[in-house]
Computed example of a mutant assay.
Amino acid sequence: MGKKKNKFLSSKDEKKIIEAIQKAEKNTSGEIRIHIEFESSTNHFDKAFEVFEQLEMHKTKDRNGVLFHVSPTDHSFTIIGDEGINNATPDDFWDEIKNDVLKHFKKEHYVKGLCEGIKKTGKALKKYFPHQKDDVNELPDEISYN
Results as ranks from 00 to 15, higher is better:
99 N>M: 07
145 Y>A: 02
14 E>P: 00
63 R>N: 10
20 A>E: 07
27 N>S: 14
132 Q>M: 06
111 V>T: 04
74 D>N: 08
55 L>M: 14
79 I>L: 13
109 H>F: 10
95 D>E: 14
127 K>E: 06
142 E>F: 13
28 T>Q: 01
115 C>N: 02
48 A>K: 12
87 N>H: 13
67 L>G: 04
125 L>V: 00
101 V>D: 03
135 D>W: 03
113 G>C: 02
113 G>D: 06
14 E>G: 07
91 D>Q: 12
32 I>P: 00
63 R>A: 12
48 A>D: 10
102 L>N: 06
129 F>A: 01
36 I>V: 14
133 K>H: 12
52 F>P: 02
132 Q>V: 02
120 K>F: 07
27 N>L: 15
56 E>D: 13
63 R>K: 14
145 Y>P: 00
90 P>S: 08
68 F>L: 03
144 S>P: 01
144 S>E: 08
121 T>G: 00
98 K>H: 10
91 D>T: 10
68 F>H: 01
34 I>N: 04
5 K>F: 14
80 I>D: 04
138 E>Q: 06
56 E>A: 12
110 Y>A: 01
70 V>G: 01
38 F>G: 05
17 I>Y: 09
22 Q>N: 15
97 I>W: 02
90 P>H: 11
11 S>I: 13
124 A>T: 00
19 E>V: 07
109 H>I: 04
73 T>I: 11
82 D>F: 08
79 I>E: 04
120 K>L: 11
25 E>M: 06
136 V>L: 09
52 F>E: 10
58 H>D: 15
82 D>Y: 10
39 E>D: 15
116 E>T: 07
130 P>N: 03
118 I>R: 03
65 G>Q: 05
30 G>H: 03
14 E>H: 05
13 D>Q: 06
88 A>S: 14
19 E>Y: 12
110 Y>W: 15
23 K>L: 12
89 T>L: 05
87 N>R: 13
9 L>Y: 14
82 D>W: 09
81 G>V: 07
145 Y>Q: 01
62 D>Y: 08
5 K>C: 12
61 K>V: 09
69 H>M: 15
50 E>G: 06
40 S>F: 11
6 N>F: 08
45 F>M: 09
54 Q>S: 11
123 K>D: 11
78 T>Q: 13
115 C>I: 01
101 V>N: 01
82 D>I: 03
57 M>I: 09
145 Y>W: 13
143 I>Y: 03
30 G>D: 04
142 E>S: 06
35 H>F: 11
4 K>N: 13
110 Y>L: 15
79 I>G: 00
121 T>R: 00
109 H>Q: 14
30 G>I: 03
5 K>T: 14
80 I>N: 06
127 K>S: 01
121 T>E: 07
89 T>S: 03
122 G>H: 09
44 H>S: 09
84 G>Q: 09
125 L>D: 02
100 D>C: 00
38 F>Y: 13
119 K>A: 09
86 N>W: 13
86 N>H: 11
58 H>L: 11
104 H>P: 00
76 S>C: 10
31 E>K: 12
134 D>K: 06
18 I>C: 09
45 F>W: 14
